[in-house]
Design a protein around this nucleic acid. Structure first.
Lengths: 353, 353
DNA sequence: TTACGGAGCTAAATCGATTAAGCAAAATCT
DNA sequence: AGATTTTGCTTAATCGATTTAGCTCCGTAA
């Protein structure tokens, strides 16, 4: 198992190990001629530095951690939202010479396990990006007190070394509700995510304040909560529409749930957008492919990931990034929203003539 | 930055560093009483081993590499297929105490870059799992000659240290075609993936041999090729249906492309499954949510990932796994397949009465 | 002539673990 | 009792890099 080491190069070049190390690292105190010879030999021997050795002395691993949190087997990477974020994060890291190590914490009572930060310390991870953090996470206080930079997706933490990226939910939801109101909707419901997600609170705030600023009444009977899955969205919608059949539009806190709403609407014989307008959130790939295609708020997922990476990298270089970066989510109008239809379901056929 | 080291524990416990190391590693040559004391102090000081140091001497990093290959920005993690595979892979690794490092190689002419194996060597990665490898990959011969275990998704390589996981495409496609034939279809087309994916070849073989064994003629005019995207699938289908309007069913090599086919069918005014039956492959989450929901071949993605991890782990422990493991893809019949409808598109309205 | 300074390189310590070799005391055998 | 083994621990080398301190040689200024 003869891996090439600095020593091998040093011997072949007839210089000391130090000289080789410094030549390869670009220090100016190695003569041009010697440096050339060293570089050539290194190339020849296909030298790859042993990063474990380097890490041991420099205390810098060149590794950033990614934590994909979630309880169930099916969550985590398979969520249609995460993919592009991770792509952006990894691309940006790679660009700057960092590598990425991924940790997954499911298993609800993770208390027995080591905290996220312990995992980082073992691997000398320099900074971490956490996706899917919830307000009821058992390690929240550890994270807040972290000594290494932490970037969280969506959920800001109040630590010196904690930063967050996300989209401006409030103004995004405003745009969505305004769009519905402009079309003429008066009874606009909401299918929100669970309370333990910080975005749920923000989006609810956005919903309420948008109604107020548009002069529409807020009615708690057309507010439902689901678990960010399609099945949950469907369920929540059904209970909503059964309670309030006069609802003509619904804002849904995620596209996945919105797809469930679409399904529920079909089940109740409501056609979208004629009988019901639906606005989602996220603009996942699926949103453009459903029938009807979903009007939604586009989150720039790739850029969110990139931003997280850049914040982490700059924090690691001693340049403190802003503690919270908010990107803009843009409204994409597709086929799931239209003017409210006053004709009842049973009369739709007439309309066709 | 006072991280706890073996030395700290040793001093506090009044023993040598070796004793601490051996006590923590569970060697039997440390007295019960001493071991207890050491363990307690380690706990107290929240000791986390420095894995870089350990790796340096043992030459085992406890890290497996995951390579998510793909050319475009949007590929890689965001592909609806990868998520669950990665979940299974990571869960299984974590179970066995391994961590995962992820590398991404896009940038078409990756020649300037280091090969996959160089990346592994730098990080002392013990084994690697490659997803999305193509037959025209520039590093194919390096991989085949690899000294560390490599597991590839779908595409088998002929090396001593190369293994592969995948689904038995041929028998899966047989089941799909038989299902269509049983329904009464005689003109069954195929939208396949590009040739550089080994699965495309296998699925094409399955398609041809299934037709033969069912006594149906093979007709190259109803064979099309796309790039595994929805847009590509739509495009390929359109050219197919325009050439052969009498085609009543189409087998599509991936669900994503199949969703594109559904879109294309809508555009041409064909209703699925009445005018056209569609069978996909993969059973991605979206497949159950389209309208109509897609009949497809379910790939056990999570299990594929788990299997890859187990093969890698066992290969790293010196136990050679089988060079190729094929799981079964099961046919899931949903709403996109039905008996062929002899009535032409224009007459569909009559049927409704 | 002596001293100083810079250029170019080396020696040796260090990071934090693992592990081979060995040693002292206690336990066991003869 | 004396020899031998076992138990429980220590010493010191090692992995492969980085880094600090210092050394040698040469040119130049005083």
């Amino acid at each position: 198992m003869g891996r090439t080491t600095l020593k091998d190069i040093a011997e072949k070049a007839g210089v000391s190990v130090t000289a080789v190390s410094r030549a390869l690292s670009g220090y100016p105190d190695i003569g041009e001629e010697t440096r050339g010879r060293i570089l050539r030999i290194a190339e020849e021997l296909n030298y790859q530095p042993n990063i474990a050795a380097r890490t041991l002395v420099t205390h810098k691993s060149g590794v950033m951690g990614l934590f994909v949190l979630g309880r169930a087997k099916g969550e985590g990477f398979s969520h249609p939202f995460s993919g592009q974020v991770i792509n952006g994060f990894l691309d940006e890291l790679t660009e700057d010479g960092y590598d990425m190590m991924v940790f997954k914490a499911n298993r609800p009572p993770d208390s027995e396990n080591s905290s996220y930060l312990d995992l980082c310390r073992r691997r000398m991870v320099e900074g971490a990006f956490l996706m899917g953090l919830r307000t009821d996470d058992p390690w929240l206080s550890d994270l807040t007190a972290s000594a290494i930079p932490i970037v969280t997706m969506d959920m800001p933490l109040a630590g010196d070394m904690t930063f967050s990226v996300g989209c401006d939910s409030v103004s995004a939801v405003h745009a969505a509700i305004r769009h519905l109101a402009d079309l003429g909707h008066k009874r606009i419901g909401i299918v929100n995510g669970y309370k333990e997600a910080s975005i749920s609170l923000e989006r609810f705030e956005g919903y309420k304040s948008a109604l107020t600023s548009l002069g529409l009444p807020f009615d708690p009977t057309i507010v439902a909560e689901a678990d960010f899955t399609a099945a949950g969205g469907r369920q929540a919608f059904l209970s909503l529409i059964d309670k309030a059949p006069d609802m003509t539009a619904v804002f849904v806190s995620s596209d996945l749930m919105a797809l469930g709403v679409l399904e529920g609407a079909r089940e109740r014989g409501l056609s979208v957008p004629e009988d019901l307008s639906v606005v989602g959130f996220d603009n996942i790939e699926m949103a453009a492919m459903s029938s009807p295609p979903l009007t939604t708020l586009d989150q720039p997922r790739y850029e969110l990931g990139q931003t997280a990476a850049r914040m982490l990298i700059s924090a690691c270089s001693g340049i403190t990034p802003p503690s919270r970066v908010l990107l803009k989510a843009n409204l994409i109008v597709r086929g799931s929203t239209a003017k409210p239809n006053k004709i009842k379901t049973g009369e739709v056929i007439e309309k066709a003539h």
